[in-house]
Design a protein around this nucleic acid. Structure first.
Lengths: 197, 197
DNA sequence: CCGCAAAAGCAAATAATTAGCTTTTGTGGA
DNA sequence: TCCACAAAAGCTAATTATTTGCTTTTGCGG
């Protein structure tokens, strides 16, 4: 049985560790290059066609790589899609700073709802579950929320867990399992509940 | 392109509509029999082996059916698994009646958490998303909760939506995306929040 | 009881996946 | 700096899954 690592534990970072050169340059090793090329091929294909129709041989062709590389590294399409989804889930920047805890949480929640209820967002959520560590998803969300909480050290605030349970969970749940995503109004109501003492 | 119906919209029920005969007998048509046989094969195989390793040809062999039947009807394994998962999600009996709203909700939530955090439960949740109508899942949960609420017409009670957002959503979210499922204590706290005014 | 359409079966063609072996490539030790 | 080693990629030939066109079965309505 092969070792399937996906990308997360061995991200480009490790290849970069001794170099202070321009970040636009390709990291280092061949596998890093190959992986980047495969991820990029997946991202491209997801823009062009239906998620259900992308195949391993297709990705391999686009990435200029042999299919067996993909099979050996990820095992199947869903693991690869999961890997890409998880990588994309990584937020590009810190949550907006509006000056108040309430405002920050609200801004974050609205953006999150918005991003995740789009077609690609929905697919990402779906794919992430096939990942080796879907729990990484909650970790990312938790990290973002913690960042917000840390901005207001001198005021009574809820735990990250509470925010996840009362805000992120309903948002995601309704996207995945309900007829329609949360209304913004309902989201606001949930935020009130989460923040009140 | 073929028409993929899965089972839900055309359940055995329709074949039964003129018959008041014993419900233990097989419904009627061939396709009903075939479908039942396929569902049953899937259930068997899921007990015997890893979810990731069951294949269409394997299911077909077990069900005594030709693979193309499965491909034509469901399209691929995940759609079939989803269909089976959704069918299993249908609760066998009404939520327990403990005599109080609080008690009923608590009993339901505890059982739900318990069922869904098991390995097969987790898989079911995962598969359901690949279904034609994953939203059917929220419908089922909503129905159960509504049944409970209807038992107490004369007292102030939360909406089904509120219960779903505050109780079911965190339960499911943590199972799918977090390191560990909700602690029963946390669940109780969420129930308090959901039921208070 | 017959004819029609929907669904199932069959089998050949195509496509995806696996597996064994060879080649490339980056790393760490002389 | 160069060399040997191991990890990862490439190649190719099986194997296995999926699609497709056509035939057969079967249940329903006339």
């Amino acid at each position: 049985m092969a070792f399937r690592t996906g990308c997360l534990p061995q991200d480009p970072v490790q290849y970069r560790k001794h170099k202070m050169t321009a970040p636009t340059l390709r990291p280092g090793g061949r596998s890093a290059r190959v992986q980047e090329s495969i991820h990029s091929a997946v991202r491209q294909l997801l823009e062009e066609q239906d998620r259900a129709s992308v195949t391993v041989p297709q990705i391999a062709a686009r990435a200029g790589v042999t299919p067996s590389t993909i099979y050996r590294r990820w095992g199947d399409v869903s693991a690869l899609l999961a890997d890409v989804a998880l990588a994309r889930m990584q937020p590009d920047n810190e949550p907006a700073n509006t000056g108040s805890l309430h405002g920050d949480v609200r801004a974050w929640a609205e953006q999150y709802l918005d991003e995740m209820s789009s077609e690609p967002g929905r697919n990402m959520l779906y794919d992430v579950q096939a990942a080796l560590k879907p729990s990484y998803c909650a970790t990312i969300i938790g990290g973002q929320l913690q960042t917000i909480l840390d901005r207001y050290p001198d005021q009574p605030k809820p735990s990250v867990d509470r925010l996840i349970n009362l805000i992120a969970a309903p948002t995601v749940f309704r996207i995945l399992f309900a007829e329609a995503p949360l209304e913004v109004e309902q989201l606001h109501r949930l935020i009130e509940i989460a923040l009140n003492q």
